[in-house]
Design a protein around this nucleic acid. Sequence first.
DNA 1: CTGAAAGCGCTTACAG
DNA 2: CTGAAAGCGCTTACAG
Lengths: 335, 335
Amino acid sequence: MPKKSPVTLKQVAERAEVSRAAASFALSGRQGVSEETRSRVLRIAEELGYSPNQTAQNLRSSRTGVIAVYLPKDVSTLSYYMEATFGIIDEAEQSDHIVTLVPHHRTVKSLGRLHADGIIMLDPTFEDPSIPRLLGLGLPVVSGEEMPDPSAEVAGQVTSDHVGSTVELLDHFESAGARCPAIIAPRERMPWAMSVEDTYRRWCEDRGLTPRIEYAALAGIEESTRRVTRTLLDSGSVDAIIALTDGSVLNVLTSAAEYGRTVGRDLLVAAAVDSPLLGYTDPAVTAVDLRPREFGRTCMSVLNRVLEGEGSPQEPLAEAVETTVVYRASTAGAR
Amino acid sequence: MPKKSPVTLKQVAERAEVSRAAASFALSGRQGVSEETRSRVLRIAEELGYSPNQTAQNLRSSRTGVIAVYLPKDVSTLSYYMEATFGIIDEAEQSDHIVTLVPHHRTVKSLGRLHADGIIMLDPTFEDPSIPRLLGLGLPVVSGEEMPDPSAEVAGQVTSDHVGSTVELLDHFESAGARCPAIIAPRERMPWAMSVEDTYRRWCEDRGLTPRIEYAALAGIEESTRRVTRTLLDSGSVDAIIALTDGSVLNVLTSAAEYGRTVGRDLLVAAAVDSPLLGYTDPAVTAVDLRPREFGRTCMSVLNRVLEGEGSPQEPLAEAVETTVVYRASTAGAR
DNA sequence: CTGAAAGCGCTTACAG
DNA sequence: CTGAAAGCGCTTACAG
């Protein structure tokens, strides 16, 4: 296939017998050109298959046309992030931005080469050294879930109601007969997970229960989840578990089986993040649907508003995305 | 944070008291500037935190700096694609490209606005209407796994040895005592899956066995996998199953349990794609490690060679990535 | 070894 | 209502 060189504005203008400026005005819908000329230019542009050179447009408007998305490390098994990323992509099309993923191994130096109009950080973690570096780039940042450092100057923030969903899950456990719920949280401390954790602690406190919290590292989450699940089950009394990630909950099921526990009857299990897998495990697992696609779209639409000048570091834009608990067999209870 | 406008070449040149051209030469390591001048320019660039404006460079060199990656639809649960994408990203940094994902809903029109230097298609499927459109853009394409239409003019192709790994799995089944293996393939026809299927058919034929093949759609793969697994188990004779995707194999495990079959003993199960989950299910599932990260890197390095002028539609570049079967408890066999 | 100039494709004040 | 010109930041032939 011969690399046909793309049609330029100049060619459209020549064919339409107007100046490039006039052609540009016609295409952009700007005033200053007669209706007749405009429609002619549009028709010719269509015929020629003209598509403006984004690079030139970007240079002219001194923007990059790029949105950088930063995900936590070691999350390839979590469909949440892929869904959220596609949500961002959907919305980014509206503002003619392309979306690129920031690799994790980046050094300070290579980060300096990251040219973007804005950054979306999903689930920023406390220990991640890239986060301050990314913030230091001086680009507008929208965080999906809270920033680990609340003083970080983000232009916008999108959150889910983890407090509400956690209370709902715990109340559901309780009404299904559980008396000693535990949670398994990611070792990497992320604000959303800590919010779940805090909510859980408070819920326990209100009832005079001792919280039972175990941590599993995201790198090798399967292995560590199995280990901590055993720890929880060894203790004997635990009768319900919330695993914070969708992948790890599978390992809770497996470990439970080894202990002769029947999930959904004498051990209730739920996940703080839903995934397509969880509807079809045995038993199917109750989980919180965080609507990752919508979450991603919301992050990007907030960023678009920021890029248009809304919000400020003092008054960051904030949005929340609805969540829903999806009840399945794993929390049916003994009755 | 005040949006500090980035340092330009002009500023570096002025500080170094040379022309922009000289500064450019110094930075690019090109001849035509004294060593002394070069080191001074480099030092000043460093001091000022200069980073060339990619957009301007791209415009100048009439490239976009963008690689578009196209994934099959409905694969968010498959870690393979996320890993492969990050592999592509790693390698794309070498050639100063950023990587963007192509959304699926794109119309012909919006595809026209896809400005990229090249396209990497992972696991192109037969029925996907976007594929001919993407090919029609006239950009160099590297396909990860074969193209559905072998006459499609791709500039490069990266494959895994599915024939070898499938035979290895089947032989392993056989030596573990299985006599009637079946496979569950994605309904969306992809060349790699068909290659597994063909290999399976031939393997059966060689032994006078009747092939047992069921199909599961990627959209809702969990549900359909359970259904077809039941179909296979209802028949009674099936004693081994290869599920082609990592997500669906979990549903095979679940369904098997419902039928009172003990996976790893009276039912052997394996997956044609490994994932971190499979090492920690109960039992752990034998699977083919396709080295997705390396696969992605290879796709991008092939594309880089194409962009540098290697290969041609008549003589596309071809690379293969090694695979390894990872043996786990699900195929241990009765002995 | 270095500088002045042209140009990548676009948009937008500024004159007419 | 339209055209000529400048400029986004860079690179590279072309003169000196």
